[in-house]
């Protein structure tokens, strides 16, 4: 009898579990996964939503083969990798440094922590605007300062290399707080025993940092790395506002290129294929990182 009651309540419990899960599943299914599949089918067609009169032709993998040989898209992929690599690398290093600076108790800690944190809660579009105001040759403060220093024709947004530097810099400005916040949280929950052991062994503070702190922080750093790589690779807002992908194709990212193809040229089929290529790249990168750093999904 008790058994039966328990079984019954277990059954109800299980039903509640599923019941509670249903809205999430439906929402994700309808708004994420169904569109994802829909997009996959579209990517096999030559089709434009704005030009239905030009027809819809099934072209197998032609859109994909075009994507992988499209110089403009390849440039966008290269740019995005460059952007991701430098932005994330600097953010990680700077993130660790700032976290170490902010670690511990000192006067004004809350002020500094708050001030340095603020960029991460700013709207990316506004960030693009801010830096456009600062970088633009005609109105910008930064080119002006360079001119004062004697570099008459330093124009950030019209030099291919400097434009990329600017875009990377802006990303660093905005997302380093994300890195240092997580790393700081990791720092404050470090165990003290390894340090005591290191002290006893007479390790210098650099040694302690490299042989104790960094290894202990590795899980946090890896998570920051993973999340930042996934986010940086799909960068859109700031580039769209700051450079629009220019000059030339110097700061064109895979996202700006795909969005332009989809919503300005309305090459819907081709753009879907481009988007899928981006998706596959991100998925493969994430997979490699998860495997490489042996992260368990439950750790994320």
């Amino acid at each position: 009898m008790r058994d039966a009651v328990k079984r019954l309540s277990d059954f109800v419990e299980k039903r509640i579990a599923v019941l509670f899960m249903i809205p999430t599943i439906i929402t994700l299914g309808l708004v994420l996964f169904f569109p994802l599949l829909y997009s996959l089918t579209i990517s096999f067609y030559r089709w434009s939503v704005a030009r239905p009169f030009l027809g819809k032709t099934f072209v197998f993998f032609q859109n994909y083969s075009k994507a992988l040989t499209d110089p403009a898209f390849l440039v966008a992929i290269r740019n995005t990798f460059v952007f991701t690599f430098f932005a994330v690398a600097v953010e990680l290093i700077l993130g660790i440094a700032v976290a170490l600076l902010l670690h511990g108790n000192f006067k004004g800690k809350t002020f500094f922590q708050t001030a340095l944190f603020l960029p991460v809660v700013t709207t990316p579009v506004a960030v693009g605007i801010i830096w456009r105001i600062l970088f633009l040759t005609d109105v910008g403060l930064i080119p002006y300062l360079f001119q004062l220093a004697g570099f008459e024709r330093v124009t950030f947004l019209s030099s291919p290399v400097l434009a990329m530097v600017a875009v990377i810099f802006v990303d660093i400005w905005q997302t380093t707080p994300f890195a240092f916040t997580l790393i700081l949280a990791g720092l404050s929950s470090l165990p003290s025993e390894p340090y005591e052991a290191a002290m006893i062994d007479g390790a210098t503070s650099w040694q302690r940092f490299f042989y104790v702190t960094l290894p202990l922080l590795k899980p946090v750093i890896v998570v920051v790395l993973l999340i930042r790589v996934m986010d940086a690779f799909r960068v859109f807002d700031t580039i769209y506002i700051l450079t629009g992908g220019g000059p030339g194709s110097a700061t064109e990212s895979v996202s700006t290129f795909t969005v332009r193809t989809a919503f300005q040229y309305f090459n819907t089929g081709y753009a879907s294929a481009l988007a899928y290529v981006v998706f596959i790249i991100i998925a493969v990168m994430s997979y490699l990182m998860i495997k490489g750093f042996k992260i368990e999904t439950s750790e994320l």
Binding site: L136, P143, T155, L157, S158
Partner: peptide, 16 residues
């Protein structure tokens, strides 16, 4: 041409 002309669209010409 002025430095930064590569950032110019319709309006920046007018401004210059």
């Amino acid at each position: 041409t002025p430095p930064g002309v590569e950032e110019y669209r319709y309006a920046e010409k007018n401004t210059a």
